[in-house]
Write a protein that binds this DNA or RNA. Sequence first.
DNA 1: TAAACTATATATCAAACTGATATATCGTAG
DNA 2: CTACGATATATCAGTTTGATATATAGTTTA
Lengths: 197, 197
Amino acid sequence: MAKPKKTWFAILGLLSWRPMSGYEIKKFVENALSFFWSESYGQVYPTLKALVDAGLAKKLPRDGLGSRRQRYSITERGKRELAKWLSSPSEPPKSRNEFELKFFLNSSRPQKHNLKLVEEYRSQQQELLKDFLESEKLLKIAVRNDALPEELLESMPEIGDSDNQQLTVFYLTLRHGIHAARARIAWCNEVLSFLQS
Amino acid sequence: MAKPKKTWFAILGLLSWRPMSGYEIKKFVENALSFFWSESYGQVYPTLKALVDAGLAKKLPRDGLGSRRQRYSITERGKRELAKWLSSPSEPPKSRNEFELKFFLNSSRPQKHNLKLVEEYRSQQQELLKDFLESEKLLKIAVRNDALPEELLESMPEIGDSDNQQLTVFYLTLRHGIHAARARIAWCNEVLSFLQS
DNA sequence: TAAACTATATATCAAACTGATATATCGTAG
DNA sequence: CTACGATATATCAGTTTGATATATAGTTTA
């Protein structure tokens, strides 16, 4: 029957940081969380309505006279439900990694196909790591100084009004991405030297 | 319009190894590929039919008189389509990692929640790594000796009639899982010492 | 040996989710 | 003043999941 509704809690969790509009939520996930989470507009807007109907979130009055954006905030009931979910155990992720599938299925074809595939994957991951390390440097400074560097605000305006504890968790989450990217690059190097030997 | 149909090529790819039934496909993915791929019955059976309709796979005659299982094999056209897909670039995976989301969203709650969460995650990953290392040991022997150890056949009967190149790719794919699990454990250790300091 | 399990095997479906597209307004660079 | 990109909300067909239904073969245990 497909019961998860992870989107419900993902959105509720973001609203627990601060009030946001559907557009802001989508952009935030896309810009700042994309290496471990994703949401689509097709989920965000209906879910916001459903959260209101369930009494877990509520519409805020549109500030500014002609303001187009509709912001939502979390309710007390929403906070309680969120806390419950946050403490529940996480099922191990059902990943679907297209690259790994291709690598695996290539086994009955000449190895040169896989060499090319792995080299492409490696540069993809190196690019990713570069971006992570950039953000890490800035976030580290922010956490230490309890103040946000200009460049970070430019590249991620969403984190503008985060407090120190939120920045710390953000930093630690990013470290997860860095560890993962490095592991994937190390694997590529291992495979390339294995296949070329 | 949601065009991927990754399931089509995942199934086609497995059929390119050898003929399989829907049930075998589901079990194989579940037992051997679960750390980077997943399929549900709800996808497998309709997709097998669709592949036949599209001329990419065909039904095999049921062997044995009262045999209940319906096997499918890949067609020449299927092989060509598969080869095309296998050479196409992979889009970076849109992951949805429930644990990372919870860790991130916990930022506005006391840190002790996250400590518990991370410790749970670490033992989950340590368990996973243990299994991977077990399989790795056996697969390594299999690749070196070009023969399958008894224990491996017992725990993964699916790989019974694989050739040496397939085993090698299987081994290398598993290494990806090992690198990833180790990276996650290393991250847990880093976070735990950070949060406890 | 009969009953209770467990694995094999196929099928179905509501709910969740994606990716693409439609529409309209605002700010601004040329 | 206008083309363009960012902001903002909405919709929907197609994909995928997770749960459940059904039935038979084999195996354990009372």
